[in-house]
Nucleic acid binder design. Structure first.
Length: 795
DNA sequence: GATTTTACGTA
DNA sequence: CGTACGTAAAATCT
C-alpha cells in the first residue's frame, strides 16, 4: 500500500523517515507501528507535538523484507531504482510546497536523500542545508527504529529533536559566525597572545595542540578566547622547524604568559598539559578539562569533540575533512572546546555534578605525575623471566608436536599454532573429533560460538581424562601470554610508562563505530599506553604476578602497597544494610592485628549457609562461602557458580538458594536497584557519582548496575586517598601505581612504618552509607619488587 | 592495509 | 547470561 506524507500544511517541522514497515503498509499511514510509538515518545521528550508536524518517508512503499536496499540498485544505497527516484522527486515537491522551517532527517536514508551525505552518526545533531531542496534547513538524527535497537542513542536523538524544535521557529540556516585563522604568521600569533594578555575582559582561553609521532612533538598550537574565534600556528612542517631558535623561544615565552594569565580550557588535559609540561616545562593555569566535564555530566555518552559540539553548539560539522586541512581542523577544535566549556559551566551546576567534576579535576596532577615518572624495570630479571617463559613454551610446544604429530611452530614466522583459533579448532574438533565447546553467551538469544579458550580446554580436560594435551596447551598458551608482558621495550632509563585515564580511554573517535561500543566508565581509572612515552606493555593495571617481579625498587628503597581489604564486599554490606555483616567488618577493623583472623567474612558466610558454628566451618565450606559471596554480589548464574566450584549445575542452583536464604537482603537490594532504574535509569553512588544506564532493559543492564555502586564507590575512595597522599607527601613519597583498590609506592627502607602510617591515614576514609559510617580497612605489603611483597605484620 | 573478532591479563 | 578495563594477534573484509 502506498504511504504518503500526512500532517498540516502549515507545519514548521517535517519529519522524514526511510520507508513504510508492516503496520504502515497495512494502514497507509507513516510511523503508526512500533517505530511510530518510539517516535511519539521521543517527540514528547523533546516537547514537540506530533500533530503539528508533517510526517512521511522517502520510500512510499514497503520494501521487500523491510530492507531499504531493495529500492536501490547498489549495496551502498546511492543509486536509486526508478521508483525511488520518483519518490525522491515527490518529496522534493512536497518540501518546496509546504516550506517547513526545518526538515528532520530520521536515519541514514533520509540524510542521504536530503543532503547527499552518508554516516548518520557523524552528521546527526548538525544543522545542514538540503541539496535536494536548496535553502531548506535539514537536521539529521537517528531513526526511531534505531533507537529501539540501540537504546543508548535515545539521549542524542532527544537532544537533536530539541534542537529541531528551536530551529522550527525560523527558516534561516544559521550562518557560520566563526572566525578561524589557521596557520598564521609568527607576528600575527604573537600579537594575538599579547592582546589576550593585555585585555582583561577575556579571562579564559581554550588550547589545543597537534603532535607528531614519535615523541609527541608539537607541530600545531591553537588558541581560542571566544566560541567563534580561534587561531593557530605551525611549528613544524615537513619534519623541519618553522622558526629559528630565537623565534621559537619568543613564541613559547608568550604562550607561557597566556597560559599562566588566563583560565585555560583543554579537551583531555592529561595529554595536552602533559606534553606542554614534558617538552616545554609549561604548567598552564588549568581551569577546565572538557573531557572530564563531559564525563561528570554524561559518563555513558561519547566524549569526542564532534559529538559534544553536536549537543552543545549550533555550528556546522567541521570534522569531515580531518585529513585534509589539519590547521582548520585544529582551529575548529579550539573554538568548539571554548564553546563547549561555556555550555558545561551552566549544565554542570544544573545537573548537580560539579562536585564530581571538581573531584575528577583534582586527580589530574597525580595522574600526570604518574604518567611522566614511570616505573623502573630490572633488565637482568626481565631477561631471566623471559628465558624461563621461553623454556616452558618450547618444552610444551615440543611435547605437543610429538603427541599431535603436527608442527606446532610455523617455520617461516616462528608463530605457534596454539594461538590460532581456527587452526586449533580444526585440530581439536575435527582431527581429534573432540566434543565441540561453545562460548558462554551473554544472553540465551545470542548465537552459539565455537571456542578454544582456556575455559573450553579446561572443560575438555574433564571430559577426556588422562590426555596430557590439554594441560600442555594451557601451559603453552599461558606462557606465550606471559612472555608478552615480560618481553617489552623500555626507555633508555629502563623505565616503562602508562597513561592513567581518569575518564576511561574508549572515546570512540571512529565515526562509523560511534554508536556501537559500550560506554560504561564507572569512575575507576583505566591505564593505557602513553603516547608521550610509549615504553612498556601500556596497560599497567593488568600485569600478571610473575611479570611483576621485574619491577624492582632501587637500592635503599622498597615497594610498599596499601590495599583496601575486600573493598567491594564491604560496600555491598553497607548498601544492602546487612547489619550482621556490617558488625563483622566493624569488629574486624577495630580488632588488634593479631585478632583480625577471628573476623573472617567467608567463614561467617559458610556458617550461615550450612548452619554450623563458626569454629566448625571446613576449608571446603569456606571456599564455597567465598565464591558465592563474590559471585552473587553481581548476580552470577548457577552455571558459573557450578563451574567455579567444580560441582553440578543442580548443586550450583542449590548453593545459590541457600546463600540467598542466609543473605536475604541481597535480593531486596537487587529489587531496590531495579526500582531506582525504573524511575529514571539513574543511580547515584554514596560518593555522589551519577550514572545513567541507557542499555536495553534487561538482566544485563541490571547486573551492570549492581556492579556500578560498589565498583565506583571503591574507585572513588581510592582516588580520594591517592589525591590526598600526593598532596600531603608527594615530595617525600614516590607513588608508582594505582590498581583500582590499591596504591603502590616506593618507600625508603628505614621509613616503612611512617609510609604505612601516612598511607593508612589517607586510605581509611569515612563514607556515609545508609546513615552509617563505613570505613574500609587497608592492609599493607612490602618487598623488594612489585612481585615479591609480603604482608606487613603489625604489633 | 584496515577493521573485526577472539583471547587474555588485572581489580 | 558476574562487572569493569586495554592490548595483541588472528581472522576477515575491501
Amino acid at each position: 500500500m502506498i504511504v504518503d506524507t500526512i500532517g498540516p500544511s502549515t507545519a514548521k517541522i517535517f519529519l522524514v523517515g526511510e520507508a513504510p514497515g508492516k503496520d504502515e503498509d497495512i494502514s497507509g499511514k507513516p510511523f503508526c507501528g512500533y517505530a511510530g510509538r518510539t517516535l511519539n515518545w521521543l517527540l514528547g521528550q523533546a516537547g514537540i507535538n506530533r500533530n503539528e508536524c508533517l510526517i512521511g518517508n522517502v520510500a512510499r512503499e514497503r520494501p521487500l523484507s523491510n530492507k531499504i536496499s531493495f529500492w536501490f540498485q547498489d549495496k551502498e544505497c546511492t543509486v536509486p531504482k526508478p521508483k525511488m527516484s520518483e519518490w525522491i522527486k515527490k518529496l522534493q515537491t512536497e518540501i518546496d510546497f509546504y516550506k517547513p522551517n526545518v526538515v528532520v532527517a530520521l536515519g541514514a536514508t533520509a540524510l542521504w536523500t536530503l543532503t547527499g551525505e552518508k554516516y548518520i552518526s557523524k552528521h546527526r545533531g548538525y544543522v545542514m542545508e538540503s541539496t535536494l531542496c536548496p535553502g531548506t534547513k535539514v537536521l539529521p538524527t537517528y531513526h526511531p527504529q534505531n533507537v529501539n535497537y540501540e537504546w543508548r542513542n535515545f539521549f542524542s536523538t532527544v537532544m537533536d529533536l530539541r534542537k529541531a524544535k528551536y530551529h522550527s521557529e525560523f527558516p534561516e540556516i544559521p550562518e557560520d559566525r566563526r572566525h578561524l585563522y589557521p596557520n598564521v604568521s609568527l607576528k600575527e600569533f604573537l600579537m594575538y597572545c599579547q592582546e589576550l594578555i593585555s585585555d582583561n575582559t577575556f579571562e579564559k582561553v581554550a588550547l589545543d595542540i597537534e603532535t607528531l609521532q614519535p615523541g609527541c612533538h608539537i607541530n600545531i598550537i591553537g588558541l581560542s578566547h571566544l566560541k567563534d574565534y580561534a587561531m593557530n600556528i605551525a611549528l613544524i612542517k615537513n619534519k623541519s622547524a618553522c622558526f629559528s631558535e630565537n623565534e621559537e623561544h619568543e613564541l613559547w615565552y608568550w604562550i607561557d604568559q597566556v597560559l599562566r594569565a588566563k583560565k585555560v580550557i583543554m579537551h583531555n588535559a592529561s595529554f595536552d598539559a602533559n606534553v606542554l609540561l614534558f617538552h616545554h616545562h609549561i604548567l598552564p593555569n588549568l581551569y577546565m578539562d572538557t573531557l572530564i566535564a563531559a564525563h561528570a555530566l554524561w559518563p555513558e555518552l561519547p566524549r569526542d569533540l564532534g559529538y559534544l559540539a553536536s549537543l552543545c553548539l549550533d555550528i556546522p560539522v567541521w570534522k569531515t575533512k580531518s585529513g585534509q586541512d589539519l590547521y582548520l581542523y585544529n582551529a575548529g577544535d579550539c573554538a568548539a572546546t571554548f564553546g563547549i566549556a561555556e555550555f558545561f559551566e551552566k549544565e554542570m551546576v544544573k545537573q548537580k555534578v560539579d562536585a564530581t567534576y571538581r573531584f575528577e579535576m583534582s586527580q589530574l596532577p597525580v595522574a600526570s605525575m604518574l604518567q611522566l615518572n614511570g616505573v623502573n624495570v630490572d633488565k637482568g630479571i626481565q631477561k631471566q623471566l623471559k628465558s624461563e617463559a621461553t623454556v616452558v613454551i618450547e618444552k610444551t610446544g615440543d611435547d605437543l608436536s610429538k603427541l599431535l604429530k603436527i608442527q606446532i611452530y610455523d617455520k617461516v614466522t616462528g608463530k605457534s599454532v596454539m594461538r590460532s583459533t581456527k587452526k586449533l579448532q580444526k585440530i581439536l574438533y575435527i582431527d581429534l573429533g573432540l566434543p565441540v565447546q561453545y562460548k558462554r553467551r551473554k544472553s540465551a538469544s545470542d548465537p552459539r560460538k565455537i571456542t578454544t579458550d582456556k575455559e573450553a580446554i579446561a572443560r575438555l580436560a574433564i571430559l577426556v581424562p588422562n590426555n596430557p594435551i590439554f594441560n600442555l596447551i594451557l601451559e603453552h598458551r599461558k606462557n606465550l601470554s606471559l612472555r608478552k608482558f615480560i618481553d617489552i621495550e623500555t626507555s633508555l632509563e629502563s623505565k616503562v610508562y602508562t597513561s592513567y585515564n581518569i575518564t576511561g580511554k574508549k572515546d570512540n573517535k571512529d565515526e562509523k563505530k560511534v554508536d556501537e561500543e559500550g560506554r560504561k566508565s564507572f569512575g575507576r581509572w583505566s591505564s593505557s599506553k602513553s603516547i608521550i612515552l610509549p615504553f612498556g606493555s601500556g596497560n599497567l593495571q593488568n600485569i600478571p604476578p610473575i611479570a611483576r617481579k621485574m619491577y624492582r625498587a632501587p637500592g635503599g628503597f622498597e615497594w610498599v602497597a596499601g590495599d583496601l581489604v575486600q573493598a567491594e564486599a564491604v560496600v555491598v554490606a553497607y548498601l544492602t544494610g546487612d547489619q550482621t555483616l556490617i558488625k563483622l567488618y566493624e569488629d574486624r577493623l577495630n580488632a588488634p592485628f593479631s585478632e583480625k583472623g577471628k573476623y573472617d567474612v567467608h567463614n561467617y558466610t559458610a556458617s550461615m549457609m550450612y548452619k554450623v558454628k563458626l569454629d566448625d566451618v571446613t576449608p571446603e565450606q569456606r571456599k564455597v562461602g567465598k565464591t558465592l559471596r563474590h559471585a552473587l554480589a553481581y548476580d552470577a548464574g548457577p552455571a558459573v557458580v557450578a563451574a567455579r566450584l567444580g560441582v553440578s549445575l543442580s548443586e550450583g542452583k542449590h548453593l545459590k538458594e541457600i546463600f540467598h536464604q542466609a543473605n536475604p537482603r541481597l535480593l531486596l537490594w537487587y529489587k531496590e536497584i531495579q526500582d531506582k532504574l525504573g524511575n529514571d535509569r539513574t543511580l547515584i553512588t554514596p560518593i555522589g557519582r551519577k550514572h545513567r544506564f541507557l542499555d536495553r532493559w534487561s538482566d544485563d543492564l541490571w547486573r551492570s548496575a549492581y556492579a556500578f555502586l560498589p565498583q565506583s564507590t571503591v574507585g572513588d575512595i581510592l582516588n580520594e586517598a591517592l589525591v590526598e597522599l600526593y598532596n600531603l607527601c608527594g615530595d617525600i613519597l614516590d607513588i608508582k601505581l594505582q590498581l583500582h583498590d590499591a596504591i603502590y609506592v616506593w618507600s625508603p627502607l628505614e621509613h616503612r612504618e611512617e609510609t604505612i602510617s601516612y598511607m593508612r591515614s589517607c586510605m581509611q576514609r569515612k563514607v556515609e552509607i545508609n546513615n552509617r559510617v563505613m570505613e574500609i580497612e587497608a592492609d599493607f605489603k612490602a618487598g623488594p619488587s612489585w612481585g615479591e611483597m609480603e604482608d606487613v605484620k603489625e604489633a
